[in-house]
Structure formats: structure tokens, C-alpha cells
Amino acid sequence: MIDPSEFITFLEKKFQYICGVPCSYFKEFLAHLASHGTETQLKHVYATREDEAIGIASGVAFSGKKALVYMQNSGIGNIGDALTSLAQLYKLPMLILISYRGLEPDNDFPEHSIMGEVNEPVLKAFKVPYWNLSEDRWTIEMKAAIQKMTETSSPVVLLVKKGVLCQ
């Protein structure tokens, strides 16, 4: 697992807001954020839906500031219009962390199996660039994603497998 405190220290240099709907794959990261909320520069906004989170991040981006969004990959099913007719169309940069459910560790969770199979093709179809976040090379992957986000002034995705931001 990436050390949550190092991860948050990295994030707060680039982002002022964080917003999303949780997944158990983010458990330790979100727990750390909740318990150290007052120390960090990152302001946390709870969302009721993933498309709402993209909307809030869009409002932040219209202000010339940056937000990070987190969601389970099931949330990809909720954000198609928010991406295509708002964040991508209006060129609003944001980094979206998406848990990669439906792979082998989720064999007992059939609710994730189809999205697990299609989530990469769906992101490709939406033309959203994405990277896999790994425990060993996370700073390099984050930097590559953030560079693309800045260059294109558009949303980018980091896929997060089990064990990367949770135990």
C-alpha cells in the first residue's frame, strides 16, 4: 500500500479540493484524510453521485483551481454525460482516481465483473487518457497523468487496483 500520508502530501501540492464517492479500495487513504483533515490543504467535499463530483470539480476548474475526484469503477457508468458534455467539452482539468474492481480479487463480487471487463474499453471510447497506479512507481505515474491533464487541460484517470490505497 502507498503510505497515505506521503500520498496526501504529494496531492496537496497540486490540488486544492478532493471530492467523490468512496470505494473500499480507498479505505486507508480516505481514513487518513478524514483523521488528518485539519492539517491538510486539501479540502474534502462529499458527493452523492459520481457525476455530481465531476460537476463540483468542474466548478473548481472554472475558477482556475484544481480538484481530484475519486470513485469506484461502477461510477464510470454514472459519469458519461458529465465527462463528454462538461469536463471534456469545456476543457476542465481534473484527476480522477477510479478503483479497478472486477479483477481476480473480486471473484466473489459478481456485481463488479462486467464493469471490470469493460472499464478500460469504456475509458478508451470516452477518449480519457488513463494510467495504472502502482505501489512502486506511483509518483512517476501520477506525474505523467498530471502532466497530461495540464497539457490538455482535460480530465485524466488513474486506475487503482486492490492493495494500492487500501490494505
Binding site: 479540493y17 457525476d51 465531476i54 460537476g55 463540483i56 466548478g59 473548481v60 475558477s63 462538461l86
Partner: peptide
């Protein structure tokens, strides 16, 4: 907003918090 039906309030909330 030209699209993103259902999202004017979140966009406004993001703007309000950031400004």
C-alpha cells in the same frame, strides 16, 4: 452550461467553495 443536465448545482457549489 450547454449539456450536463442535472449538474448546475454542483458546478455552482464548486465555484462557491473555490471563490
Amino acid at each position: 452550461l450547454r449539456g450536463s443536465m442535472g449538474l448546475p448545482i454542483p458546478v455552482g457549489l464548486g465555484l462557491a467553495l473555490a471563490n
